[in-house]
Design a protein around this nucleic acid. Structure first.
Lengths: 156, 156
DNA sequence: GCTATATACTTGCGATGTCAAAGATCCTAC
DNA sequence: GTAGGATCTTTGACATCGCAAGTATATAGC
């Protein structure tokens, strides 16, 4: 394996992502029929106020493109875990809202998936190392989050 | 953003990969018409003895499936950067060999891509941090590399 | 030699996700 | 109020990649 000094960290980063992701994705798929991205979206919606988020914001936080979110949510909507909601103050925006079934689904998936993450990923590090890792990774560019995301006129 | 303590590192890992990967992949694509995986494969071949590697081994080190490698190499072959070579001692195996054009292509791509990696990824860390990161990431499961990869009767 | 199993590779199909373009709505300036 | 531009979303065309299945070859057991 080519591990020139400077590239070492980058290569390992790529490999680690491929391996861990494949493992976790497989488990999540067989146990719950969800993608990692599906789960990621469900997490965000679950913890969002009212279980609801604008699609654009969702796209920005899970790092998908707008069209990516459309297609992903298509799937979750077909499964009945998410629905659309119109925005009174701005007819362009559509909210993605977790349904009751979606809440249930997420809570079911959460338990095993967290355990899987812990087993495949987290358990390899001490708490201190985990923080270090999080801090280091946090320095990487997480997309240009223009802070225009101030929840504007949103009432229902 | 949901950043529960235990999941923090994992979430950042996912996000960081998505963001950095997208950026680097975009640059590599527009500058050289290559995928990150394409480049990864070219690196491995470039530094391999004789610029040649069995497809299975290639698949294992870059963490693609066998079919993934087939299709990826299809592309590189069509572009003339890689060719197939039969193995005398075992008719099942096919080698992937870098052509002269492939060597040139890689050397051209390497320069700018390394700089891009450094800029987007590496420059955010000190040397010490880089080692720490590499060490931590290195603990993650890098696929079950069954050590059967001992270069057997290969002379051709 | 012959069958059984393992390994190397390819192919069909489906899933995911991107980009570019288009439609709808909003906002600002005049 | 109207033109111009920005923002939100969807859609079509396309690329990548995994899984399952199939083919070809090798190896071990009989």
């Amino acid at each position: 394996m080519v591990t020139e000094p400077e590239l070492g960290a980058w290569i390992r980063f790529l490999r680690a992502h491929a391996a861990v992701t494949r493992e976790l994705s497989g488990r999540l798929e067989t146990q719950h029929g969800l993608t990692l991205s599906d789960f990621d979206v469900l997490v965000q919606l679950y913890y969002a106020p009212d279980h609801r988020l604008r699609r654009v914001d969702l796209a920005r936080t899970v790092l998908l493109t707008a069209s990516g979110i459309t297609r992903l949510l298509d799937g979750l909507e077909r499964s009945g875990w998410v629905t659309k909601a119109r925005c009174d103050s701005d007819a362009r925006v559509t909210y993605a809202v977790l349904t009751d079934a979606g809440v249930t689904k997420f809570e079911a998936a959460q338990a095993t998936h967290r355990a899987d993450i812990e087993q495949v990923f987290g358990s390899r590090f001490t708490d201190a190392e985990r923080s270090t890792l999080a801090e280091l990774l946090g320095r990487l560019p997480l997309a240009e989050t223009s802070p225009a995301c101030t929840g504007e006129g949103e009432t229902a």
